[in-house]
């Protein structure tokens, strides 16, 4: 195969298998691989070769989409380690975090109900800062302490925050018109 399917996504891009990655390096490697396998490079070739290149291009884009975002990258790292973040019990999560979540959610719902764009944007900003804190923690747990159980718990938190971000974005999109 053109693109080696037995390689994990990190190896595919020639990156070390860790949470904290060089995003510029990821972009460069992605561009370099797509320059070889993108369908535009194979338009004039027979069907079988186009098909082969297409499979490579799909794989490369899938790998890129997974590594690009901190949440999917973290989940993928857990996957590689055989840990399923979805199976971690909700109850196990610190009650402090769950209360914080409820507060966030109430604030978002209130801002949406009042059509308050400024409030939503403020929330988005605060959320970004919170996400930054959590991803910093993740980097530490994955890369320095190599504590996957702790990382799995943090990933779970990041999933909550990600859902919040979607809610805020949906709220803002609804108020665009």
């Amino acid at each position: 195969m053109s693109v080696n399917f037995s390689l994990d996504y990190f190896a595919l891009f020639g990156l070390p298998r860790r949470f904290d990655i060089d995003e510029a390096e990821l972009d460069r490697a992605w561009h370099a691989l797509q320059a070889e396998v993108h369908p535009d490079r194979h338009v004039h070739l027979p069907g079988s070769e186009r098909h082969r290149a297409m499979r490579g291009a799909l794989r490369v884009n899938e790998a890129y989409a997974t590594l690009k975002k901190p949440l999917s990258r973290a989940r993928y790292l857990l996957d590689l380690a055989g840990v399923d973040a979805d199976e971690i019990d909700n109850v196990a999560m610190a009650s402090g975090f769950l209360i914080e979540q409820m507060e966030w959610r109430e604030a978002v719902e209130e801002a949406r109900a009042f059509g308050d764009v400024d409030a939503l944007e403020q929330l988005a900003l605060r959320l970004r800062m919170r996400v930054d804190e959590v991803t910093t923690l993740l980097a530490e747990q994955f890369d320095s302490r190599e504590n996957r159980e702790a990382a799995a718990d943090t990933v779970r938190r990041l999933m909550f925050l990600d859902r919040l971000r979607c809610d805020i974005d949906d709220g803002l999109a609804a108020l665009d018109d």
Binding site: M1, F13, A29, L45, R52
Partner: peptide, 18 residues
């Protein structure tokens, strides 16, 4: 030419990454 094409692409991919 299928196998030939596969080898050529393999090689170009490796080179691209390097």
């Amino acid at each position: 030419t299928e196998e030939f094409a596969a080898r050529r692409m393999d090689r170009s991919i490796r080179a691209a990454l390097a």
